[in-house]
C-alpha cells in the first residue's frame, strides 16, 4: 500500500505479510512512518493505493470498528473515566456480549496478566507497568484478528520495559496472538520479533528472522540503525559491529586516535577518529580485552573480526 501525507512524506512500497500467531516487528527511526503504517492497517487512515488484507478479506475500505483489529497506542489511551474492569470489558460490551461472558473473559485475561486485583481501580490509580497490562487486556479482550502495538513501552524505565516486553511476548504466544509491534528501539524490536522488518522514509524492507536481519545487514541505513560502523577500507564500503573488533598491531584494518572513552558496565565504549579519512568509528570492548589501558589520544590499531561488504 501507499499513502501521501505531505509533499515531504509518504508511505511507499509498503508490502509485507504476517502469519497467524506470529509477531512481526517494524523498526525504524523517528519519522520513518512506523505509526502511519499501523494507522493504515487499523483504518484510522485510508491508503491512497494498495490494500490491506486480513485472512483473505480485503478490509481496505472497511470501517475501523468492523475490522476487528486492535491497537495499543504509545500513551495507551486508557479511558480515564472508566475503571480497569470497564476499560477491559469495553470492546466486549460494544459488541453485545452477554454479561456473564464478559465477566468470565475479563477475569480470565486479568488473571493471566496479573491485574485481577486492580479491576475496581481507575487508570489514574495504577502504576505504569499495570497500565501497560490493562491496555493489553483491553485490546485482546475482543479477540482481534490482529493486534497493533505502537511503541507501547516507551514511557517505562529500562528495567520495567524489559520485564513487560517479556510478559507481552509470553502472553502473545500463549494465546496465539498475531501482532505487529512498532518500535524505534532495535533491541526491543529484535526481542519481540518472530520476524522483523525495517522502515526508512516510508519504505518497508522485506521481513526476515531477527537474527538474520541483525547479523547480515545488507545496506548502509540498516547498518546505521543497528549501530554498525560504516567506513571505506581499500575502496570498499565495509560495515562492522562495534563489538566485532580486536586490537591488532600486526595486521590492523585501520588505525585511529581515541577521542573519547567510557566504561558502561558490560563493555567499554571508545570513539576513534581515523587519521587519514577523518571518519569517526565507535568501538565496544568486552571486559577482559584490555580496554582499561586505553587513554584518550592513543593511536589504536584495529582489526575487524567480522566484515560486511555493502
Amino acid at each position: 500500500m501507499g499513502k501521501k501525507y505531505s509533499e515531504r512524506f509518504s508511505l511507499r512500497e509498503v508490502s509485507f505479510s504476517v502469519e497467524k500467531g506470529e509477531t512481526l516487528t517494524l523498526m525504524g527511526p523517528s519519522g520513518s512512518g512506523k505509526t502511519s503504517v499501523l494507522r493504515n492497517i487499523a483504518g484510522l487512515d485510508i491508503p491512497d493505493a494498495g490494500s490491506v488484507i486480513i485472512s483473505g478479506k480485503n478490509i481496505t475500505k472497511m470501517p475501523v470498528r468492523k475490522r476487528n483489529v486492535g491497537i495499543i497506542f504509545q500513551d495507551l489511551a486508557l479511558f480515564p473515566h472508566m475503571t480497569v474492569y470497564d476499560n477491559i470489558s469495553y470492546g466486549l460490551r460494544v459488541k453485545g456480549f452477554k454479561r456473564s461472558e464478559i465477566e468470565h473473559r475479563v477475569y480470565e485475561l486479568a488473571k493471566m496478566l496479573g491485574i485481577h486485583n486492580l479491576l475496581e481501580r481507575y487508570p489514574g490509580e495504577i502504576s505504569g507497568g499495570e497500565k501497560q497490562r490493562v491496555a493489553l487486556a483491553r485490546s485482546v479482550a475482543p479477540a482481534p484478528l490482529l493486534l497493533l502495538l505502537d511503541e507501547p513501552l516507551s514511557s517505562l524505565d529500562t528495567h520495567l520495559r524489559n520485564r513487560v516486553r517479556s510478559d507481552i511476548k509470553e502472553f502473545a504466544h500463549r494465546i496465539g496472538l498475531t501482532m505487529i509491534y512498532v518500535t524505534h528501539d532495535h533491541s526491543e524490536g529484535l526481542f519481540m520479533a518472530d520476524r522483523a522488518s525495517l522502515i526508512f522514509n516510508g519504505r518497508v524492507k522485506a521481513p526476515e528472522l531477527p537474527e538474520t536481519l541483525f547479523n547480515n545487514p545488507k545496506d548502509v541505513e540498516t547498518c546505521r540503525f543497528f549501530g554498525y560502523n560504516v567506513m571505506h577500507i581499500a575502496g570498499e564500503t565495509v560495515a562492522f559491529h562495534p563489538l566485532d573488533i580486536s586490537i591488532d598491531d600486526e595486521e590492523p584494518d585501520f588505525s585511529g586516535a581515541v577521542t573519547s572513552k567510557g566504561f558502561e558496565g558490560e563493555h567499554t565504549r571508545v570513539h576513534l577518529k581515523i587519521a587519514n579519512t577523518g571518519e569517526s568509528v565507535e568501538l565496544k570492548f568486552n571486559r577482559g580485552m584490555g580496554s582499561e589501558n586505553i587513554r584518550v589520544g592513543d593511536l589504536l590499531p584495529i582489526k575487524i573480526l567480522r566484515k560486511h561488504y555493502l
Binding site: 484510522l44 491497537i71 489511551a77 469495553y90 485490546s139 475482543p142
Partner: peptide, 19 residues
Amino acid sequence: SREFLESSLTLGGHPFLDV
C-alpha cells in the same frame, strides 16, 4: 486526546457517546 477516540473506534465503540 485523539488516541482515546481512536481506541474506542478500533474496539468497535462509539467515541462520541462512550468517551
